[in-house]
Structures are given as structure tokens and as C-alpha cells.
């Protein structure tokens, strides 16, 4: 869609420095003859007609040249930024397909709206298994602390921002947020809050482990 392309262009333009132009409005006469003269001047200087002209031109543009800004929202969607903080996603390990969450409970702890709850247990492989995980999106304020604190980059924010519901409490379970196993290849690393900084390698102090 043309306007979506345009939206992208606008984003690009916005990154550049904006130039503001100040209008020279002159002095506003307060009373009597000068005020009257101003009204006459403005009325007769076709200013009003210019306004009509602009709006008419835009109508013609809209009708016949397709220059419209409307995104017909549920049918068309604008691309969102990769750092956008919407409904969480639980990522999987790319190699094994196993979910990344280790059940450390840090997200549960740091959650300032107290909407994350989890249950863990000792599984048959002697590992900590996440048996239940929920986020109450009725309470979540999408602050991103959970994603930031996650040591495994397991819980991240996704792009699913349509979370209107008929109930105040809207719970998402682990499976709802987990990358479907058949879509593992489409899983993207989150670029926002809590992700590894581009220069992460430089900040790591090397430890002698080469034995």
C-alpha cells in the first residue's frame, strides 16, 4: 500500500532534524478603524478562498490520485518497530527446539504489576521444569522488566498488540506465548529491552576455561 510506504518514508524523515518556520503574523490591531481595515483586507485578499482551494485540492487528490493517509486498520496493519513492547513471546532454543525458560523466577520477582506466576518442579531428568506459566495481561503494564531481567533471553516482547478482551483478566499460558515448534525457523531475536547489546563481546571479561 502506498500509504504504508509513505509511513516508512515519514519515519525516515522524522529521523532528520526538523526545520521549523515561524510565520510573520504582524501586529494584531485591538480596536476601531485598524481592526476594521484588517478584516476588510483579509476578507478581500482571498485568504478565505485560499483555504477553500487547499481543501478542495486535497479532496481531488484524495479522490482521484489516491493520496490517502488512512490505514484501514484491522485489514491493513502498519509495520511496528522491532523494539516494540507488546504481548510477550517465549522463545525456544534454535538448536534443540527446547524452550529457553529455565524457571528461575526472576521475571515473577521483578514484575511490578505482579502479573507473572509460575510453577516449577523437579522433573525426571533432574532438571528444573516449568510446569505452569501465566501472565495476566489484564494487569501487565508492558514495562519490559521481565524481558530485561531474563538471563536466558527466553521471555521477550513481541508485536502482538491486539489484546482487547471481554474480561478484565486475560491470562496467557506458556503454550500461547511459546514459539510454535514448526515456526522455529521464523523465530527472531528481540532487539529491544533486555537484549544483548551490539558490543556485548567487548564487555565480557574472559575467564580461563581452556583446559
Amino acid at each position: 500500500m502506498a500509504h504504508i510506504e509513505e509511513h516508512k518514508d515519514t519515519q525516515a524523515i522524522q529521523r532528520e532534524k526538523q526545520n521549523y518556520i515561524m510565520l510573520d503574523l504582524g501586529k494584531t490591531p485591538q480596536f476601531g478603524i485598524p481592526a476594521f481595515i484588517q478584516v476588510v483586507k483579509r476578507s478581500l485578499s482571498r485568504e478565505l478562498l485560499k483555504g477553500l482551494g487547499v481543501t478542495f485540492r486535497e479532496m481531488i487528490n484524495a479522490l482521484f490520485k489516491g493520496k490517502l493517509h488512512t490505514t484501514q486498520y484491522p485489514f491493513e496493519k502498519l509495520p511496528i518497530a522491532p523494539r516494540y513492547r507488546a504481548i510477550h513471546e517465549m522463545l525456544r532454543l534454535l538448536e534443540s527446539g527446547h524452550y529457553r525458560c529455565i524457571g528461575c523466577g526472576l521475571c515473577e520477582k521483578i514484575c511490578i504489576s505482579n502479573c507473572i506466576a509460575m510453577e516449577t518442579r523437579y522433573d525426571e531428568n533432574q532438571r528444573k521444569e516449568v510446569s505452569e506459566y501465566t501472565i495476566n495481561f489484564g494487569r501487565c503494564i508492558f514495562c519490559g522488566y521481565c524481558a530485561e531481567v531474563c538471563p536466558e533471553l527466553a521471555i521477550v516482547h513481541g508485536g502482538r498488540y491486539e489484546n482487547a478482551s471481554e474480561q478484565r483478566a486475560g491470562f496467557s499460558l506458556f503454550e500461547d506465548m511459546l514459539t510454535p515448534i514448526d515456526k522455529l525457523k521464523e523465530q527472531n531475536e528481540f532487539a529491544g529491552f533486555g537484549s544483548i547489546s551490539p558490543n556485548a563481546d567487548e564487555n565480557i571479561k574472559k575467564t580461563p576455561l581452556a583446559y
Binding site: 524457571g103 528461575c104 523466577g105 515473577e108 520477582k109 510453577e119 516449577t120 518442579r121 523437579y122 528444573k128 521444569e129
Partner: peptide
Amino acid sequence: FVYTANSWE
């Protein structure tokens, strides 16, 4: 108790 809860919870 193993792996069922964290001390801060």
C-alpha cells in the same frame, strides 16, 4: 522442596 520455589517468593 527441590525446584519448587525461590526464596524470594
